[in-house]
Each structure stands twice: as C-alpha cells, then as structure tokens.
Design a protein around this nucleic acid. Structure first.
Lengths: 339, 339
DNA sequence: TTGAAAGCGGTACCAG
DNA sequence: CTGGTACCGCTTTCAA
C-alpha cells in the first residue's frame, strides 16, 4: 500500500519521473529507470486504482451485462463469461459484473458514474431493452449477439446464417434432399436472438437448394427427452437423411442414442452436422460428428478489441461484425443412399 | 456526466452541502435538500466513481474470485455468482470478476491497487492456493466454502456435516438400518471442499447410529449414466432402503428413473433424501423428494455482511460461519419395511 | 532528461 | 445549518 510519493523518495527522484518511468510515456534514462523499478519492487508498489481513474482518462474496467436468465444454457454462458474475462485481461482490463435487474439499471449507473470504459452485452435477446439504453448513454457498448433492431449498434457474433447455410449446402451437395433440424428449446426462439437466425437461414437455404426441410425444437425443459425422441422418430419415418443439430450437449446425446436404438448408423443411414456448437464436441460425443462451432473466445476477443477501438479517437466504422463459420469434418456426412 | 460543482451551482449551494445532502452524513435543511435533489435529477448527476474511491475510504466494489474449473457444476456455480451479485447490490456494492489464472494473481493485483474493498472466494478447493494468498494481503477476504486449512480465515457455508447427519438420523429414526449415498463425480472429492465433508459426516453418522452405509460416486462425466444405474442396482440388490443423494439434477433424474425401472416405489420400497440440493427440486423432479437444500442466497448474503463487517472498526470475531441445514419434507421418507 | 505544480471530482474537517 | 478548503494519489502540462 505504498504510494507514488514514497517510491519517488526511495528512488531519489520526483513523482512525475516515477510516473513516466512506469508508463513509458516519456523517455527516462536507463539509470533512473532502474532505480525506480527497484524502489517499486522493494515497496511492493502498485498504483492506486481510484487515483488512476480520476487522473487518467481510463478506468481499465469493462462492464459485462448478463441477465442470467434461467432459460440460457449455463455451461455455454460460463464459457462466454470466461472468454470475455480472459480477453479483457489480455488488454489489462477487468470485468465488472452486471446481472439481473442491474443488467439494465446497472448499465445506466456505471455509465453515469464513469466506473467503466465500455460495456459488453451478453445474452442478447431479439428484443432487448439494453438496445434502447445503449443509445442513451455515452459509454461505448458492444453487443455479443445481434438483436433484431441493431441500427447503429456495434455487434459481434458468429455468422449463424452462414453457418446454417453451410450445413445445408454440405448436406445437399452430398445428395441429401430431405433435411431435418433439431433446434433449441421452444422459449429460446422467443427470447434469444440466434436460434431464429439459424432456423430462418436453414429454411431459406433449403428452399434455395430445393430440398425438403423439417424443423423440431428440443422441447421445453421437463419433457425434452420425450420431445427429442419423438423428433428423431418423425425424421426417420419421413425419410430424412440429412440432420442438422443446433442444440445443447445433452440433446446431442439423446439424438445419437435414439438413432442407435432405431438401428440407424452415422453416416451410412443418417448424415449429421452440429451447428453453433459451443461445447467441446470431440471430447463429449461418443461418435464423431461434423461441427460448425461457436467459439466464445473468438467473439469475446473481437468484442474487447472493438471496445478498445471505441475508446480511441477513431471509433470502429463497421457496426456489424459477423465471424465466418468454420467447418470441422469428423466423418459424419456421407453421400445420400440411392433411393 | 455533470460533476458536483455544476450541481452546487445549479442548486445555489456549496459543494460540501451537495455532498452532505446526498450522503446524509450531516443534517441539511429540508429546503436545500430538495433544491439539491432537483438539481441532481435535472443534470442527471452521479458521483464520479474514481473520485469517490480516492477521496472516500471505500471503492464500493467486491472482487469475486472463481477459478471456473471445468469440473464445477455450471448451473450451481451461476446461482452463486448471481446470489453474490444480488447480495452485493443490496448493500450498494458491485462485483468485479476474477476468473482463471487471475483467481489468484488477480487477488494480489486488486488488493495492491486498492480496487476493491473486500474479496469473496468461490469454488473453494480443499487445498486452495487462495488460502495462503489471503493471509498475505490486507484486503478482507471471505471464503464461501471451507478449505481444510481454514485457521484464521473467515468462512461461510452450509453446515454440510450437519446436513448429512440430519439425513442419516432421519432415515435411521424411520427404521432404516441399511443406507446408501450417491454422491458427486469422482474428481469433486479430490478438488472441491464440500463433497468429502458430506461423505465423511454421512459415514460417521451411520457408524454412530450403527447403520450400514454404502457409498457411490456419480461417476466421471462421460459414464455417469452407467455409473448411476450400476449404483442404484447395487443398492437395491444389497437391501438398502434409505438413500441419500448429494448430486446434480440430472443424477437425481437418473436415480429416479432406474428405481422406477426396477419397480421400486418411493417411499414404499425406498426412502430418499436429497442433501445440499442446489436446484429447485420441487420444480424439476417428477416425484416429491425430501430435500436439505443448499441455498446460495443465504451463503452469499451472509458473506457480504461479513465482508462489510470486516471493513468496520470491529471485524467479525467468529471465523467459521456454518449455516444450519433446513429440512423440507415432501413425503419421500417412510418407515422401513418389516424384514 | 528531469522537476514543479495544476488539476481530476469527490469527502470530511474546521470555521462560522 | 452551511461554506471554505485541505487532502486522496496519480497523470500530464509547463518550465528548466
């Protein structure tokens, strides 16, 4: 808890020299630099955060707003929080958490008090009250997810539309004419932003490729096992041979289990692609499934960089940053069986 | 982004009066108080966070360290983060997140820079490196969980030992002489602090009551379904009639499913008590199960209060705060069948 | 290459 | 009940 004055005395220099020696914003002779560094080490000096915030222009803190809705998938959510935290630290920033009611009220609060330099928005809803708020405050705000009304907002996300299209194209190219999508729980299509984006793009792509496209949600929470089983049965019985999954890890397992029970092999009888997969599919799934992953690290790193840019004299020009999908092949897609 | 000087001018008073009118630390006449409040509203004034940290003695920020180990149960973890955040806000505090490597390095950092007033420790391991760290820094630290070596530390947690004992006593009192415990995944017993506390207390209580006690983990992650099924079969075949569960929600469902498959009814053939349950069992489970819940809100609220006390002139004297278990009866315990 | 000093925006003490 | 003002610890401009 030593302060800059004590360091200056110990090093036999003025406090401004200490400041410059540490920040490097002004040339300092090698000799004094070393003396300062020694004093810093000896006293265990660390600049006072409050004083820095006040005197400097930066707080070195980002707010992270996340409603923590009970319907959001906890493990995925945690990956994003972790990724945001790691990305922020890499740029010497800390993360201040705004959950629940605070997700909106807290945004105004931290913006008004100048507690944070920028705000990262997680768990973005299709219609999100934080959209309106972000337009009122002058603290730069980055959305990780794309709300319906994103006019003028800075948004980062996986290009879910392109991902869905890539999955459909891959299956149709392999000769599959009858496709199925097993997606998120019902509520996710009402509250979140990306499930409908995947579904719409899936259906549009199928239409474009003149393929038959069915859709099933993965049920509400309690009955998901039954819903998934019924969906798989329906798909099998209606002759679907190309299956797209956009769902949680346990739903993947249920689908695989049911396919096995019904004697369907992957990829011989059914080609499968998992889209927007946020878990380590390779580690979790007993069978190799082609994956178009959702990579939290990529979104969050980009979001942090955009936040930093927003602080600079020239803010980012591009508002919508969609990350191109990548395709990991694991042998779960085969040519369609002759019919 | 107005500052206190502008508010003072608008209200026609001095800045100190503004400060006191807002903090209430000095009597202010009703008249000027109202004028100040009006000016505050009009200008959208909110005290600058950095200035407050510097001038006042408080930062109004708690750090929350959580390694976010992949083996910790994500939904439970999120409940604790949310509960901590809500409890902190109730006392006008924000939460700064320290994850991963930062969980330890970050602790020193925020302590040294005076960024936070206190540190809350989550996801406590039996042997946790943050224990040693907390003894070196002078920022008050509250552990939510009890590490093996907790000499001199302030810890808050559910009294897991008492909870396990309560479960055993309840079953033995009902006449059950042969008990089983299906617990956490294997790794949890090596890394976390509370699973072994439950297990030890379970076994000690059974010994004390002269009952037979078996134990099963809920497997490692991949094979948990098989492990749980095998455990239930084993318990049934060895004549266990009193079952204690200390596991995640999905394990509960698996256990119930297997009991049903084996034609065992609750409570007629098997009495069941869930210990340290961190989810809403009533909502999730299809059958009513007696529960001794783990209530994140309780632990976190207490932790926040202790943090605040640590800041006051008289720090808390009691170091170990174990929250007494509560028993929610839902009819899953019945007298043991005559043998 | 270095030092002195003016803020940054509050808090809280000292006067009145 | 209210005003003036000395800090809090650092950054940065101005001078040397």
């Amino acid at each position: 808890m030593a302060n800059i004055t004590e360091v200056a005395e110990a090093a036999g220099v003025s406090i401004s020299t200490v400041s410059y020696a540490l920040s490097g914003k002004r040339p300092v002779s090698m000799d004094t630099r070393l003396r300062v560094q020694a004093a810093v080490r000896e006293l265990g000096y660390s600049p006072n955060a409050g004083a820095r915030m006040l005197a400097g222009r930066r707080t070195q803190i980002f707010a992270l707003t996340e409603p923590l809705r009970s319907d959001s998938h906890a493990p995925t959510h945690m990956s994003f929080v972790l990724a945001a935290s790691v990305a922020a630290r890499r740029h010497d920033y800390d993360i201040l958490l705004l959950t629940d009611e605070q997700a909106s009220a807290g945004m105004s609060r931290v913006a008004a008090s100048g507690l944070v330099d920028a705000i990262l928005v997680l768990d973005v809803g299709a219609h999100d009250e934080r959209v309106g708020l972000s337009r009122q405050i002058d603290t730069p705000t980055i959305f990780i997810g794309v709300p319906d009304d994103h006019e003028g907002l800075v948004c980062v996300d996986l290009d879910f539309e392109a991902a869905a299209a890539l999955a459909v194209d891959t299956l149709v190219d392999a000769g599959h004419r009858s496709l199925g999508l097993i997606g998120q729980p019902v509520v996710a299509y009402e509250k979140s932003n990306f499930p409908p984006r995947v579904r719409r793009a899936y259906e549009a792509s199928a239409t474009r490729r003149e393929a038959d496209a069915r859709f099933f949600s993965s049920g509400d929470r309690a009955s998901s096992a039954d819903a998934v089983r019924a969906a798989v049965d329906d798909l099998i019985d209606s002759g679907v041979t190309g299956l797209v999954l956009h769902a949680a890890d346990d739903v993947h397992l249920m689908v695989l289990a049911r396919l096995a029970e019904r004697g369907r092999r992957i990829p011989d009888d059914m080609s499968v692609i998992s889209v927007g997969t946020s878990f380590d599919a390779a580690a979790l799934l007993p069978v190799g499934i082609d994956v178009i992953p959702l990579i939290p690290e990529a979104s969050c790193e980009l979001a942090v960089e955009l936040a930093l840019q927003s602080l600079s004299p020239e803010p980012p020009e591009v508002k919508l940053h969609l990350i191109a999908p990548t395709y990991l092949s694991r042998g779960s897609v085969a040519p369609a069986p002759r019919s």
